[in-house]
């Protein structure tokens, strides 16, 4: 396969970038998208030029590192697929493909296609955890977990934190990511004691990072490689409203914690 690539090149944070054209010859349909990018970079290195920087790690669709907007779609055109699992057979010989980084104020470009996604880590640090006392290990299965709660929690926990939801959202909103983390923890017995505090703190951090507001386009769910449903966003909206109106939350604010 022979392809024409238009790739975003940017030397560093805050400097203007541009699209760069590359003719790529000899692409195998069995290559993954990242292997095709490797081919481009090998040639650039041979020519003494700077290779295209992009993030990758496991290359099996579970780490959440790879992050490219391919032909205007986060992780490319295929449903429920990270770009590392997107194979070149999805494209046709002679295709022109645009490759861009995730674009959001909260995700500054580090270089070329690499963006800084620490904002998502800070949303997690604000409340995406359960507090446990250290000491001897508790007995296994000492806390009963309803089967339904475990199942839905697991669905939400499938989020790999890649940020495709933010990239695909017309508003660069991180609602699907944050909602998945809230849904994952808030329904488990271990997560319930901090549920109200969690949803408020995570939403507050999400806003502070400069992510947009959800206007229910549902592009996030379409782009999500793990198919996290937008039902979790509705769930978080409700949990947030309830927590914001609760007397316990008001008391916690007054006491200076929570």
């Amino acid at each position: 396969m022979n392809l024409t690539l238009h790739v975003w090149r940017q030397e560093g944070p805050g400097v203007p970038g541009r699209m760069e054209r590359h003719e790529v010859a000899g692409v195998s349909p069995d290559m993954s998208f990242l292997e095709m990018m490797d081919l481009v970079n090998e040639r650039l290195v041979r020519e003494g030029k700077e290779p295209v920087a992009f993030e990758h790690d496991c290359r099996e669709g579970i780490c959440g590192c790879c992050s490219m907007v391919v032909n205007g779609a986060a992780h490319g055109p295929k449903k429920a697929t990270t770009v590392c699992q997107l194979h070149m057979r999805t494209f046709k010989d002679g295709d022109t493909i645009t490759v861009e980084p995730w674009r959001a104020a909260a995700f500054p470009v580090v270089r070329d296609l690499v963006v800084d996604r620490s904002a998502l880590d800070r949303v997690i640090a604000a409340g995406g955890f359960v507090s446990v006392n250290t000491g001897s290990a508790p007995d296994g299965n000492a806390i009963p977990v309803p089967k339904e709660a475990a199942d839905v929690s697991m669905d939400a926990a499938a989020c790999i934190g890649c940020g495709a939801c933010v990239a695909a959202c017309p508003n660069a909103s991180a609602m699907l990511f944050t909602a998945a983390k809230v849904a994952h923890l808030n329904r488990l017995p271990q997560g319930v004691p901090e549920a109200a505090r969690r949803v408020r703190a995570m939403v507050e951090q999400m806003d502070a990072e400069g992510f947009g507001a959800c206007t229910n386009h549902y592009e996030c769910m379409e782009a999500c490689p793990k198919e996290i449903p937008v039902r979790f966003i509705a769930e978080m909206n409700r949990a947030w409203t309830k927590a914001s109106l609760s007397a316990e939350s008001a008391a916690a604010d007054k006491a200076g914690f929570g």
């Binding site: 205007g72 959001a104 909260a106 017309p170 400069g210 769910m221 782009a223």
Partner: peptide, 18 residues
């Protein structure tokens, strides 16, 4: 808020479901 959240627009953004 939403405009501020994406200061640099995509060169190519193709709406999938909206």
């Amino acid at each position: 808020m939403n405009k501020a959240a994406r200061p640099v627009p995509y060169v190519s953004a193709v709406p999938q479901v909206t």
